[in-house]
Design a protein around this nucleic acid. Structure first.
Length: 693
DNA sequence: TATGCCACCTAC
DNA sequence: TCAGGTAGGTGGCATA
C-alpha cells in the first residue's frame, strides 16, 4: 500500500477508509484474547468473526485497486513474470526490455563487475534548478514543461552506450563508463560531419552511422504509448475492462521511459552505469531548458519573465496581463519553443497560476487553471506543508485554509482573523487530537550511533517494544506520536509519546499547544506570509486573550455577580517582560469547570463556584445529561461501523486512530469524568442508569 | 549565535 | 541477496 496510496498511516483501518471508503473497527488484542478465552458458544465467535473480516479486507482492497490486472499488464509490457513486477526493482525491468532489443541487433551483453562499477568516475553534471524570485504573484504565471525531457534527449541526440565515442578531450586513462576506451583519431576525422558533441564534451555518432539501442528502445516505447492512448480514446464508454487494461499499459510505458535515465546513472546499485552517458543526458536537458528560458526572456512581444524553473519546467510571469491573454501567450511559447528543438522534444503548456506564491526551490503553491474556460481554480501545492507528511494535519489544514483565504480575498486581515480563531481553539483545547498526531517512518537499526538520540517516532516505537516486543514496527513503518508538556527546558525527544497515552481517559498528559503553535504552525505560515511583510509571532503575541469581560459574561450567565478584580489571578499582557512565561503559565494551569476562570494546580472548580452548591448541582446535572446523550449518539454511530453488532455487546471496544469518532468519544468521556470528579469535590454525585460514575 | 550533522520527505 | 538517480528544504540537536 505504501506504493499505491499516499497516507499518513498505513494501518488497515486507514487503508480501508482511503481505498474502500469504509470505516472498520480496531479491537485491541487484549479484548480479542478475552473474547477467545470465553470458549465456544460464549464469545469466541466474536474474535473469529473479527479476524476473518480483516482477512477479507485484504482481498477487497486488492480488488478495489485492481492490483492483479495492473500487475499482469506490467508483466506483459516489460516481459517479466508476475511476481518479479512486485519483488524486483526497476533495473530488472529496463534490462528485460533492453536486452531483448539488443539481441535483435546482434549485440552481446557483457556486464561489468562490482569492482568496476564502484570505481567508475563520479557524475559531474547537474540539472538546472533556478532560485525562484520568492514573492506573492497576483499576475498570471504560466507553467510549461518539457514532456519526457530525458527520454527526448536520448532520442534526439542518439545518446547510447553503443553510440558513445568518449570524451572529446580524453584523460590519460581514457576512462569511459566502467571501462576504458578512446576512439581512434582517424575514425573521428572520418566521421567529422556525422558526430554529435554534447555539452559535457562527449562525442556520439549520428543515427545515420549507428542508431543507438537505448534511443531505439525509447522511440518504440514512446510511439507505442501514443498508439495505446489513441486506442484508449476510441473505446466506447461501456468498454470499462479494456479501458483499464490500456490505461495500465500506457502508464507502464511511461514508467519505463522515465527510469531508463536512472539505469544509466545507477552508481550505487547499478549493473551497467555510464557516468559520461548519464551526464550527457542531464546536460543536454539543462541546455535545452536554458535555451528555452532565454528565448522566452528575450522575445520582444511577450514582455515575459521566467521567474522559476526546475530540470524541465519554466514558470513565466506575465505582468499586467489577463488570464485570457496568458492562455494565448502560453500556447505561443509552447509551440515556438517546440519548433526550435529537434524532434521529439516538446514543450507543453500545463497551466496558469493565478495567483500564486513562489517560496523557495521546489516549494510553491497557487490557484491553477488548465484551460481558459475553467472557472473554479484548483489548489495546487508543491513541496509545502500541505502536501508533506512530516508535519501534523493541523499545520497542513491551517496553511491551506490561510492560503485559500489569501488567494480568494487577497486580504491579510481575513487571514489574521482566521489564524487567531484557530489559535484560540487550540489553546482552549477545542480541537481534535487527531489533527495533532505526527507519523513518521521508522527504520530501527539504521540510526547513527553518533547522534545524541533516536528520532521522536523511533523513541515512541522503542518504548512500546519494552512492554510488548511484538510492537516492533516493520521497516519504514509510519509510527504515530504526539508532543506533550514536559519539564521546563525539556528536549522534544523527552516530550513525545504514543497518542493512546494522551487519549486514554485519566491520562496525566496534556497536549503541548505552545509547541504546535510556535514550532510548527507559525514557522510554516511565516514562510508564506512573511513574503507579504507579516510577522506571525507578533500576531500570536498580540492576539486577544480570554479577558475579564468574556469571563464576566459567562459568569453572569451562570448567575454570578460581579467579582472583585483582586480575584484575577492571571491576566494577559500585564507585564510585557514576562509575557512568554505568562502565556505558558496560563495554559499550564487548569480552568474552572463552571466559569472557565483559571485555577491553581489540578482543582476543577474555582473557590468561588465551589461555595455555591446550587450552581454546582445545576451545572453538573445539565452537563452530565448532555454528555450522556452525546455518548449514546456516538455509540450508535460506532454500532453501524462495519455492520458489526457484536461491538455493542459489551460497549464500544474500537480504538481506531483512523476514525474521528474515536477521538470525539474519548473527549466526551474525559469531560464526563471531569464533571463527575468535580461534583464529588463539591459533595454532589450524579447518577446514570442507577450507576454512579 | 553560527555551523555541521542527521533524519525525513518531497520535486523532478 | 538485492536495491533507478540527484537536488533541496526544514527541524532538532550538539558543538564550536
Amino acid at each position: 500500500m505504501r506504493g499505491e496510496v499516499k497516507l499518513n498511516n498505513y494501518s488497515l483501518e486507514a487503508v480501508a477508509d482511503e481505498v474502500l471508503r469504509r470505516k472498520v473497527p480496531l479491537v485491541p488484542n487484549k479484548t480479542l484474547n478475552r473474547w477467545f478465552a470465553t470458549g465456544p458458544g460464549q464469545g469466541r465467535h466474536r474474535c473469529i468473526e473479527y479476524v476473518n473480516s480483516r482477512a477479507m479486507l485484504n482481498l477487497e482492497i486488492i480488488n478495489q485497486l485492481d492490483l492483479v490486472n495492473r500487475t499482469s499488464e506490467l508483466a506483459r509490457v516489460f516481459g517479466i513474470d508476475f511476481f518479479s513486477v512486485l519483488s524486483r526493482g526497476s533495473q530488472f525491468r529496463v534490462e528485460s526490455m533492453l536486452l531483448r532489443l539488443a539481441h535483435t541487433q546482434n549485440y552481446l551483453a557483457i556486464s561489468p563487475g562490482n569492482q568496476q562499477v564502484a570505481s567508475q568516475p563520479a557524475m559531474e553534471c547537474m540539472p538546472l534548478v533556478m532560485e525562484p524570485e520568492s514573492a506573492f504573484y497576483s499576475d498570471p504565471v504560466l507553467v510549461l514543461d518539457f514532456q519526457s525531457l530525458y527520454p527526448s534527449m536520448i532520442i534526439a541526440y542518439n545518446l547510447c552506450y553503443s553510440t558513445c565515442l568518449g570524451k572529446v578531450f580524453p584523460s590519460k586513462s581514457s576512462v569511459l563508463g566502467v571501462s576504458s576506451y578512446s576512439a581512434d583519431p582517424h575514425t573521428i576525422a572520418d566521421l567529422k560531419n556525422q558526430l554529435i558533441l554534447t555539452p559535457n564534451g562527449v562525442l556520439y555518432v549520428q543515427p545515420e552511422v549507428r542508431k543507438g539501442v537505448v534511443p531505439r528502445l525509447l522511440e518504440e516505447i514512446l510511439s507505442t504509448r501514443i498508439m495505446v492512448k489513441q486506442a484508449l480514446k476510441k473505446l466506447a464508454p461501456s468498454q470499462k475492462v479494456l479501458q483499464k487494461i490500456l490505461n495500465a499499459r500506457q502508464l507502464a510505458l511511461k514508467l519505463i521511459a522515465n527510469v531508463t535515465y536512472g539505469y544509466t546513472a545507477a552508481g550505487f546499485s547499478g549493473r551497467m552505469p555510464c557516468a559520461e552517458l548519464a551526464d550527457s543526458i542531464v546536460q543536454c536537458g539543462r541546455r535545452t531548458l536554458e535555451t528555452a528560458i532565454s528565448f522566452v526572456n528575450q522575445h520582444p512581444l511577450w514582455n515575459a519573465r521566467v521567474v522559476y524553473g526546475d530540470t524541465d519546467s519554466m514558470f513565466v510571469l506575465l505582468k499586467g496581463r489577463s488570464r485570457e491573454e496568458a492562455f494565448r501567450i502560453g500556447k505561443e511559447i509552447a509551440s515556438l519553443v517546440t519548433a526550435i528543438n529537434p524532434d521529439p522534444v516538446t514543450l507543453k503548456f500545463e497551466k496558469v497560476y493565478h495567483p500564486c506564491f513562489l517560496l523557495t526551490k521546489k516549494r510553491y503553491v497557487g490557484y491553477s487553471y488548465e484551460n481558459p474556460e475553467q472557472n473554479e481554480p484548483i489548489f495546487d501545492a508543491k513541496g509545502i506543508e500541505t502536501v508533506r507528511r512530516d508535519t501534523c494535519p493541523a499545520v497542513a489544514k491551517m496553511l491551506e485554509r490561510s492560503l485559500r483565504i489569501m488567494f480568494e480575498e487577497q486580504d491579510l486581515v481575513k487571514v489574521k482573523s482566521y489564524v487567531e480563531r484557530q489559535w484560540t481553539r487550540i489553546l482552549s483545547g477545542k480541537v481534535s487530537i487527531q489533527d495533532f498526531i505526527f507519523a513518521k517512518e521508522v527504520r530501527l537499526g539504521t540510526y547513527s550511533a553518533r547522534a545524541s538520540s533516536l528520532p521522536p517516532a523511533a523513541i515512541v516505537a522503542t518504548k512500546a517494544m519494552l512492554s510488548d516486543p511484538r510492537a516492533e514496527p516493520r521497516y519504514a513503518e509510519r509510527v504515530p506520536y504526539v508532543v506533550i508538556h514536559g519539564e521546563p527546558g525539556a528536549r522534544l525527544v523527552d516530550m513525545v509519546i504514543n497518542p493512546y497515552g494522551l487519549l486514554e481517559v485519566g491520562s496525566p498528559y496534556r497536549l503541548n499547544e505552545l509547541y504546535y503553535i510556535t514550532k510548527q504552525i507559525i514557522p510554516a505560515l511565516q514562510r508564506v506570509f512573511g513574503l507579504l511583510g507579516v510577522n506571525l509571532n507578533k500576531w500570536f503575541k498580540e492576539m486577544p486573550r480570554p479577558t475579564r469581560s468574556t469571563l464576566a459574561k459567562r459568569q453572569s450567565a451562570l448567575g454570578h455577580g460581579s467579582r472583585d478584580s483582586s480575584s484575577i489571578r492571571l491576566g494577559w499582557n500585564k507585564k510585557p517582560s514576562a509575557k512568554v512565561a505568562r502565556i505558558d503559565t496560563y495554559y499550564m494551569s487548569s480552568h474552572c469547570t463552571i466559569c472557565g476562570d483559571t485555577v491553581q494546580g489540578s482543582e476543577t472548580f474555582c473557590s468561588y463556584c465551589l461555595k455555591n452548591e446550587a450552581v454546582v448541582a445545576t451545572v453538573v446535572t445539565g452537563r452530565t445529561s448532555k454528555l450522556e446523550r452525546e455518548i449514546q449518539h456516538l455509540a450508535a454511530v460506532c454500532g453501524h461501523c462495519g455492520g458489526a453488532d457484536w461491538i455493542m455487546e459489551s460497549g464500544v471496544k474500537c480504538v481506531s486512530l483512523a476514525c474521528p469518532v474515536f477521538y470525539e468519544r474519548l473527549k466526551i468521556q474525559k469531560e464526563l469524568r471531569v464533571v463527575s470528579e468535580s461534583a464529588g469535590e463539591a459533595g454532589y454525585y450524579p447518577f446514570c442508569c442507577g450507576e454512579l460514575f
